[in-house]
């Protein structure tokens, strides 16, 4: 219980800071909308084409949005040496990881909650079904589990902004495949059973990377 109380304290602190500056949510949201608009121009106006490319462009957009927002996740911790301050606290390194995962997840879900309806509106597709929302939430958990680990790593390197996408994108390929396929089937009006194996891959990815990142996080932040 004490573990979660401290996790929530870290998340609350991040949320408070975000409410003041809107640094992550606002800028990433604008980016997301711009990408959606550009995809519309790139693929033309034909509804058949849009149905074909929508799942792909949705997940490319969210993957890039994830890179952008996760890149910022550890910057406030670095500015006044706060990460060292946290490491001097009587908490395990894992609490820091979980706290940052929860706050990044929160920010990403807020961004997606605004972007999905706009996506639905612009692409003229039923994006707001329970199926698509489930796929989105589960995939975002996977993004954030891996991304938080690599974000902590990237912030300690010389080329911060470049390191995260280079590490993040190849690792998340399987969950992106899963999300694209599953949401494609969901948008085509197929049943849950039709994409259950894709959901299985998404959930497996989440579980494996939450555990793996939890275990190795201490090695990233500790000298």
């Amino acid at each position: 219980m004490n573990f979660w109380r401290k996790v929530i304290a870290i998340t609350w602190k991040d949320a408070l800071s975000e409410m003041r500056t809107r640094e992550i949510i606002f800028s990433v949201l604008v980016f997301t909308l711009l990408v959606i608009v550009i995809f519309n121009f790139a693929f033309g106006t034909s509804q058949e084409v849009i149905v074909l490319v929508a799942p792909g462009s949705l997940w490319v957009t969210f993957a890039f949005a994830g890179v952008l927002s996760l890149n910022r996740a550890f910057i406030p911790e670095k500015e006044q040496g706060c990460l060292e301050g946290l490491m001097a606290c009587p908490i395990s390194r894992e609490i820091i990881y979980v706290g940052k995962v929860v706050s990044s997840l929160l920010f990403m879900l807020i961004i997606e909650a605004i972007a999905l309806p706009i996506f639905a509106f612009l692409f003229n597709l039923p994006m707001l079904s329970l199926q698509v929302i489930t796929i989105t939430v589960l995939t975002t958990v996977g993004f954030v589990a891996v991304g938080t680990l690599f974000s902590a790593l990237a912030v300690n390197t010389k080329a911060r902004e470049m390191v995260l996408p280079i590490l993040f994108l190849p690792i998340v390929v399987p969950i992106i495949i899963g999300a694209v396929e599953a949401s494609g089937l969901a948008l085509a009006g197929e049943s849950w059973a039709s994409f259950s194996s894709w959901l299985g891959i998404i959930v497996a990815f989440d579980a494996i990377f939450l555990v793996a990142s939890f275990l190795v996080f201490a090695f990233v932040v500790e000298e």
Partner: peptide, 17 residues
């Protein structure tokens, strides 16, 4: 860390592909 996380990814990559 990348060596470990990358290796763990291989079975999921294979499966999804």
């Amino acid at each position: 860390v990348v060596g470990i996380v990358g290796f763990v990814d291989i079975p999921i990559i294979a499966l999804s592909n």
